[in-house]
Design a protein around this nucleic acid. Structure first.
Lengths: 215, 215
DNA sequence: GTCTATAGCAAGATAGAC
DNA sequence: GTCTATCTTGCTATAGAC
């Protein structure tokens, strides 16, 4: 009695987590269509039926992995934002360090989060619009909001010359993250740590030419 | 006698073209795995066997469509480069007009070239590396080279303040094309002509703050 | 070269025992 | 809830007539 007090306790949460982790890896490695539920079950160490007991179908498993995964990554980036953008000692250095850490967190993430995000981007036209919306809100838009908030604080202290903090955060991302993302096809092609740092540093220099105060 | 004088005459070139066009559309609409050779044959108005007579397998059909398609798009962009970047009357206007036309040529292309390019990007990890290399050379890298060449000419005439024309062309693309490409997931989500023009114009203003001479 | 028909297989989803 | 075994579908690729 009472063994199902919380939703999380239904069906052993560790197995559910194993299924989602396996789904993330296999979907990321193979893409949605090529990924077989058999392979996911094998990699999770459960039977296929167990997967169908927890998830209505392959699509629901994918959606669940997408939304839980993007929250994990966002949470990680949120921590990086606090670490690098709270107390600024040197703008060029701190903005570059954050850019490097963020690029590695997104494009070189463990547990195949990177490959899975690439699969999500490949499936935008097949994805239900509301799932894509939620993924964007919980992922890219959340990070953008948090960065904009830090930039506003820097502007208030005279460190940046900004009138629209949201736009500045967008250009910061465009200049320091997108070149790395584009060059590697979102983490699919290899890139050295040195090259990441160089691209991030170049981007920050450009960003400061647009938004710096010379302070 | 002599009906097979040129390779192009083998097997009616119009049918070959129809198959490649159909492949481009179906691969673009469905993605590689979901696209069935049956559907491609039906859309081309030929039987499936005819496809297998011309192409060894589904993968070769995909590769052929990829490389012929990227040449078409590059050719189109090459014409736009000559049209907008040869005689500069007003930098902001000419650079914006080119950015708008290029974005529409790539992200709103007829015959599903846009959707097919999106599928290629989704398949980078499954694609043979040499095919990806050739696709990059014939596509993005070719356009970049041509833009850099025009920028060098402008720098020589004192219109731009540039030391590395290749880098300038990369930043121009990053600032005027990538925001549109990112926002639409490479043409998957709709965007208005006004918004394209606004994003392109903003990007050019940023570009000129980085590379303009004030002339 | 082109078509109709089919072999052979992989994968999503389900049934039924425990 | 979990597993083994199976049903069913849809697809790539081929065979064989014209």
């Amino acid at each position: 009695m009472g063994t199902e007090a919380t939703p999380a306790r239904r069906g052993r949460p560790d197995k559910r987590e194993a299924m989602i982790r396996a789904a993330t890896r296999v979907f990321g490695r193979e893409g949605y269509e090529r990924a077989s539920v058999d392979a996911i079950a094998a990699e999770a160490g459960v039977s296929k039926k167990t997967i169908y007991n927890h998830f209505a179908d392959k699509a629901e498993l994918f959606r669940t992995a997408a939304l839980e995964g993007v929250r994990d990554v966002s949470e990680h980036i949120s921590i990086l934002i606090d670490k690098h953008l709270s107390k600024i000692l040197d703008l060029q250095t701190d903005l570059t360090d954050f850019a490097v850490d963020r690029a590695e967190a997104i494009l070189d993430a463990p547990d195949e989060h990177t490959a899975f995000s690439r699969t999500i981007r490949a499936e935008v036209t097949s994805l239900p619009p509301e799932v894509l919306d939620e993924w964007l809100r919980e992922g890219p838009m959340r990070s953008l909001r948090e960065i904009a908030s830090k930039f506003q604080g820097m502007a208030d202290r005279g460190l940046l010359d900004i009138d629209d903090a949201g736009k500045a955060a967008e250009y910061y991302t465009l200049l320091t993250f997108t070149p790395i993302s584009d060059r590697t096809f979102f983490g699919a092609l290899p890139i050295s740590a040195e090259e990441i740092r160089e691209l991030a540093g170049d981007g920050v220099r450009m960003f400061l030419r647009l938004y710096g105060t010379g302070a």
